[in-house]
Design a protein around this nucleic acid. Structure first.
Length: 603
RNA sequence: GCGCCCGUAGCUCAGUUGGAUAGAGCAUCUGCCUUCUAAGCAGGUUGUCGUGGGUUCGAUUCCCGCCGGGCGCACCA
């Protein structure tokens, strides 16, 4: 399905026909800012034929008193060319005809162009959306294949709060890219191989409590691991035995391989349970062990090609030509013959390249791994110099305790993810019982589940991901203010209107809203920015843009809700307002879904 | 020592190619539920955007110095 837009600069809504009978064709609503942008580009080229228009963007005004949209890019163009910015704006304006969309364009300040939408242009856009069923965003003109690598928990360990950011951020980015029409491959690079298996195997053979394993597998695996660590500390002989188990595993010993596989199986059950609760799905789970057979040949290839060389018994890739990495070679084989993190990541990269031919690979990890990814990416460029695949390390801040130090509970434990989710649902349940005591318990439970999980996710997605993360139950489980429940509540209120209306299955309106009240205009105009926001999330890898957008949308809806009665209005107004409510509800629901957050009809 | 990140309201934090009077939430104070869900709304209070320079018509944003904090820097991942 091609969504290539015509390059005709004066394309208008009339150029977008309705879908031909019977065949479902993607009809794109024409978003005004895009139309204005196209015409602005044409006008600028008419004035400056060699101008680069790609950075000349039309964005919503920061303050509606200036207008609905603005461009400040002409000032930048003028600056580069040492022109008078205001004069350039005036010149461009004489070539600019956006009368179909806007009131007469104003030049302001040093050379802003301010655009104010005509009410009929807004209606036309809303009509287009109502008709096409699309919601204020367009599919990518050139769909990309994007691999998203996130979550990556370790086998035989409980998932804890440390996994939450990667999991939720990665899932949200994958959802956003999919929504925009990209081909997304999600891959969970689990930690299923490594030195920890020496102790786990020895622990399994000497300390395992079968009953406990049946009851609570991960807890038992964690117990034997911790216990082994203690024993090995105290007794060098035990450490030696553990190392021997590891060597046997690596050597393909059938018994150890069997135990190792069982540990992975048990862990995967846990992962699936948590992901099931979170609504997170992976297309692939290719853990470290999958790449194990590829490591030896990889190192051989890198050495043969001169990229890697021996150093102090280890093999490393050096970056002498890059000042920042000059003193930070990437080790790809230890002096004892074992392989490193970088080795696996390079092998993984090669496999993904070959298998999915991605345009971009996104790694969602802790910020402390920046140097590592810089090394891997740089090594990759040296190795596959011709590759155009974009590599993005989408990193996030550390989890800190209330004291600002690396997070630990009082007893020095990590907070387990399953317990966190339980507590979120319990807290939400208490609130639901207070607010909606009349609802049947099953429904209250379901609302609590959606609200509680939503709150946890939203708390993780709202801050700029690079900020450090101060762990706080109250903050993470907050149900008031700029939180998911606020957005879910706005949605539920809209749905309540439709319930009261008495229409069983509400079908989308056939007419565009006819806007009258200021709150209606404010709300409708904000709806138009949904696509812009999604694109920014995808480009910058920042879900918080979408959180902020939705919070504003819910706020603007509430302003409308307080001031514009729907059901009590006369027939015409009511139909119009219902249409606006419906569009708002759909954007809210889809926006929340993109964050990985569910909605309920009633709460 | 080198590198990366951070410093914005009492607290927690947003701030989209540099753009117009720097915004939310929490906390606090005052109002609003016989009116579509008060998990809500309206209003009050709060800023040397760490600091000193530079570039610019314009700097919270870009560059340099300094102060304060976090993290990372060869056989863990």
């Amino acid at each position: 399905m091609s969504t290539e837009k015509s390059s005709h600069p004066l394309q208008t809504s009339e150029n977008y026909p309705c879908s031909p009978g019977g065949i479902r064709v993607l009809i794109l609503p024409v978003l005004p800012h895009k139309q204005i942008e196209l015409r602005l580009h044409a006008a600028l080229r008419a004035v400056l034929p060699d101008a680069d228009v790609s950075a000349v963007l039309v964005r919503p005004c920061p303050d509606l008193k200036f207008g609905d949209y603005q461009t400040n890019a002409l000032m930048s163009v003028a600056k580069v060319r040492r022109m008078n910015p205001r004069q350039l704006a005036a010149d461009v304006l004489t070539r600019l005809d956006v009368s179909e969309w806007c009131e007469p364009v104003q030049i302001a300040g040093a050379g802003f162009l301010n655009f104010r939408l005509l009410p009929e242009a807004l209606s036309r856009t809303l009509a287009g959306v109502v008709q096409s069923g699309h919601l204020f965003f367009e599919q990518a003109t050139r769909p990309q294949t994007v691999v998203v690598d996130f979550s990556s928990p370790n086998v035989a360990k409980p998932m804890h709060v440390g996994h939450i950011r990667s999991t939720i951020l990665g899932d949200c980015l994958a959802r956003t890219l999919r929504l925009l029409g990209h081909r997304v491959v999600t891959d969970n690079h689990i930690g299923d191989w490594g030195t920890q298996f020496g102790m786990l195997l020895l622990g399994w053979k000497t300390l395992l409590d079968r009953a406990s394993l049946d009851r609570e597998a991960i807890g038992e695996l964690e117990r034997i691991y911790k216990s082994m660590v203690e024993r090995c500390k105290a007794d060098p002989q035990q450490l030696e035995l553990a190392k021997r188990e590891l060597v046997q595993l690596q050597g393909g010993d059938p018994e150890n391989l069997g135990i190792w596989r069982e540990m992975i199986r048990l862990s995967q059950i846990q992962f699936d349970t948590v992901y099931g609760r979170l609504g997170v799905k992976f297309d692939h789970t290719l853990g470290e062990s999958f790449y194990n057979p590829k490591l030896q040949p990889l190192v051989g290839e890198l050495v043969a090609s001169g990229l890697a060389r021996e150093s102090d018994g280890a093999i490393a890739i050096f970056f002498d030509d890059i000042p920042q990495l000059k003193d930070n070679p990437a080790l790809i084989r230890k002096s004892d013959g074992g392989f490193n993190y970088a080795t696996t990541d390079l092998a993984t990269l090669a496999y993904r390249l070959e298998t999915w031919k991605p345009d971009e690979i996104i790694y969602v990890t802790d910020g402390r791994q920046q140097l590592h990814f810089q090394q891997v990416f740089t090594a990759f460029r040296k190795w596959h110099g011709q590759s155009t695949t974009k590599l993005a390390h989408v990193w996030f801040g550390s989890i800190l305790g209330e004291d600002g130090k690396p997070f630990k509970t009082r007893s020095g434990e990590t907070v387990k993810l399953a317990g966190l989710l339980d507590e979120a649902q319990e807290r939400a349940f208490k609130i639901v019982c207070e607010k909606s005591a009349a609802l049947p318990e099953a429904q209250r439970r379901e609302i609590a589940r959606v609200v509680g999980l939503g709150a946890v996710k939203y708390a993780d997605l709202l801050p700029n991901r690079q900020s450090d993360y101060v762990f706080s139950w109250d903050k993470m489980l907050a149900l008031q203010g700029n939180t998911a429940p606020y957005l879910q509540y706005a949605y539920a209120r809209i749905r309540s209107i439709f319930r009261k209306l008495g229409v069983g299955e509400y079908t989308a309106p056939h007419a565009a809203p006819d806007l009258k009240a200021p709150e209606e205009f404010i709300l409708a105009k904000h709806l138009l920015n949904f696509g812009l926001t999604l694109e920014a999330v995808a480009e910058e890898h920042r879900p918080n843009f979408l959180c902020n957008y939705l919070h504003e949308l819910a706020g603007k809806f509430t302003g409308f809700y307080e001031n514009c009665p729907v059901l009590k209005a006369d027939d015409t107004t009511r139909a119009s307002r219902l249409a606006l409510c419906d569009l708002t509800a759909r954007v809210l629901k889809l926006g929340l879904e993109t964050l990985g957050i569910e909605t309920v009809e009633q709460m």
